[in-house]
Design a protein around this nucleic acid. Structure first.
Lengths: 147, 147
DNA sequence: TGGATTTAGATAGCAAGCTATGCACATGAG
DNA sequence: CTCATGTGCATAGCTTGCTATCTAAATCCA
């Protein structure tokens, strides 16, 4: 079992590699923008507001990761935090006008990159690919849950 | 096109999510170990030596990323750098005995996690999944090459 | 009501990824 | 031989991800 074997048939290796290529392809199209805010853009693109916790859940990242992402986005004028009147620990996060603008651009880039990737698949393979990834994600989350 | 659509059918989103789950699943099994050295382990598990550049190429990461990974591995006693007698800019990197031991453990964990993931697929889907990922990687690398 | 527990977020510290840039050594052209 | 160019690696500085831990507010229960 040599490197070539591992490189070609390790699902983890290939998945990590593909994920980095996706992120870089999107970032090249965003001229200075990064791909980290993408899940926040998608979650709030309709003008809605969410708590940090809800955003972390949707993005499937840990709370401190989302906290840092939101701090950078706030620093860059992309989101605003409005204190929750019902819970003084919490704040509702929403996109600023600049954030909405960037969200739309990010959406365009994401769709374009997604298209480049799925063009490498046969039409009937595409749904299958999503399905397989979702099953793998579910299996690995079960593994994580079982300690 | 709402969040739910994006979450379920964005190849980039799903791939990034799966990649993080793979890395965490391996790290949970390595008790303090990290998944970054994995490509180095695989490349050098047979006792061979490579330059940093060769390792970066095999791992498909940039040179500074590999430089940092090797620094951490050297700090932790996993690799040694031997000056190249033919080129004073370069060094040959090889695993220490401790590094070889960790490499074998990492290999076992990687195979186990890979098994958990591929068990979520039908046997005939497995080769297909690797093939699709490889085609997507190739497409995104072409995109990167074309600026 | 008051204390224990839960929950939302903040903070610290690290790994792994990237780009940009600098330096020293190697190499090739004249 | 010398000088321009190329190459291998190091460094700086950033983002995104993680775990561990803290604080403060909310909630639950006796």
């Amino acid at each position: 079992m040599h490197m070539s074997y591992v490189r070609e048939t390790s699902a983890g290796y290939l998945t990590n590699w593909a994920a980095r290529l996706f992120a870089r392809a999107i970032e090249r199209r965003l001229a200075g923008g990064n791909s980290g805010p993408m899940p926040v853009f998608f979650a709030l693109q309709d003008g809605g507001a969410m708590t940090q916790k809800e955003l972390a859940l949707l993005a499937a990242v840990e709370q401190p990761t989302m906290a840092n992402t939101l701090n950078r986005m706030e620093r860059d004028g992309l989101v605003q935090r409005t204190p929750d009147p019902n819970d003084r620990r919490s704040a509702r996060v929403s996109l600023t006008p600049l954030g909405l603008e960037r969200a739309r651009a990010a959406f365009v880039s994401a769709i374009e990159v997604n298209g480049i990737a799925t063009d490498a698949l046969q039409p009937e393979e595409r749904e299958q690919f999503y399905g397989m990834l979702r099953r793998i994600i579910a299996a690995l989350e079960r593994d994580a849950g079982a300690q």
